[in-house]
Write a protein that binds this DNA or RNA. Structure first.
Length: 62
DNA sequence: GCGATCGA
DNA sequence: TCGATCGC
């Protein structure tokens, strides 16, 4: 699928909200629980990597 | 605390 | 090897 293509609304470490395309998306869930989807992003302003939640319907990719 | 992931 | 991610 064409994932890691669609921008996600995320909060950068600076506190700015931007639409960024994740470098990678994966599920993070304990056994028997739903958990969340996590994306690895890079803030274009600082170049810093950070992780943030992505919508449950966002495809895994990366 | 659990879960996966990877930059630092 | 650890931090940080999020919701249960």
């Amino acid at each position: 699928m064409a994932a890691c293509t669609k921008p996600v609304r995320v909060k950068t470490p600076d506190g700015a909200e931007k639409e960024l395309v994740p470098k990678k998306v994966w599920g993070l869930a304990p056994k028997g629980r739903k958990g969340v989807k996590i994306g690895l992003f890079q803030d274009p302003a600082t170049g810093k990597y950070f992780r943030g939640k992505v919508p449950d319907d966002y495809p895994e990719c990366g």
